[in-house]
């Protein structure tokens, strides 16, 4: 547990079908943002990344203010040092995997950029397909490149919006392991408990635009796990990971 919060959030965002009022802190290197579909998880991540301005609120990352509506501070997405990967890898289709990773390294020198790309390719076991364009890559390979691209500029926080929903469990586990190895704090969003369950993580539960609970994942997500196991037939869990 870290003393200084990685991220401090207090935001309000109201649109026709969503009233988002969220206040929480991130202190763990891996935090799960859990909640049902429509709870406002993706909207919250877009606000944190700077893609969407909140109506009111304040966001600070490692003590650095990114958004403060009271003082009209709104750091642009590219200067926040936040990576953001969604279920759709959103790779630039006309660029190779390697060129995709280099896209965010505009401030790096040429040699430094090449070195960083190689590091990322190695971390995600992506060297063998780095020179292919996205259309020639599998879903898992595309997601590895997308993660490498997001981590290459050395962000202080990585936002993951259900990035493994379309991948098989083995691929997902391998990638999660690599993400832990990167050392970058992660805020991981999912509406599926089996996907979100991480025993050594913190969790933030978002329901109908409000923070319902926060704390250690094993405590916060336990009621949801018990409810799921009950629905599955009194403890006959289909997914062994939930019994961890």
């Amino acid at each position: 547990m870290l003393e200084v919060p990685i991220l401090e959030v207090e935001v309000q965002f109201v649109r026709a079908e969503l009233r988002l009022e969220a206040q929480f802190e991130l202190r763990s290197d891996w935090t799960v943002l859990f909640g049902p579909s429509g709870a406002g998880k993706t909207t919250l991540l877009r606000i944190l990344s700077g893609l969407l301005p909140p109506d009111r609120g304040r966001i600070s990352l490692g003590g650095r203010v990114l958004t403060d509506t009271a003082t009209h501070v709104n750091v642009p997405p590219g200067q926040r040092r936040i990576g953001f990967v969604t279920q759709q890898p959103a790779l630039f289709p006309h660029l190779t995997g390697r060129a995709n990773i280099s896209f965010g390294l505009g401030t790096f020198g040429r040699a430094e950029s090449e070195q960083r790309i190689d590091e990322m390719l190695e971390l995600f076991d992506a060297t063998s397909f780095a020179n292919r364009r996205p259309a020639a890559l599998s879903g898992g390979e595309q997601q590895r490149i997308a993660l490498a691209r997001a981590l290459a500029p050395q962000p202080e926080l990585l936002l993951l919006d259900e990035p493994f929903a379309a991948l098989d469990i083995a691929t997902k586990s391998a990638i999660v392991e690599k993400l832990h190895a990167s050392g970058v704090p992660v805020l991981y969003v999912s509406h599926a408990l089996a996907d979100a369950w991480e025993i050594n993580a913190d969790a933030v539960v978002l329901e109908a635009g409000r923070i319902a609970s926060t704390g250690a994942a094993r405590d916060v997500l336990a009621p949801y796990r018990d409810r799921l196991l009950e629905q599955l037939g009194g403890g006959v869990a289909s997914d062994a990971r939930l019994r961890a």
Partner: peptide
């Protein structure tokens, strides 16, 4: 053009010219 690509370009710090 897919807006997700434009979002990524912004997140990766692309200037308007880039």
């Amino acid at each position: 053009i897919d807006t997700a690509l434009l979002d990524q370009a912004r997140l990766l710090g692309a200037s308007r010219l880039r």
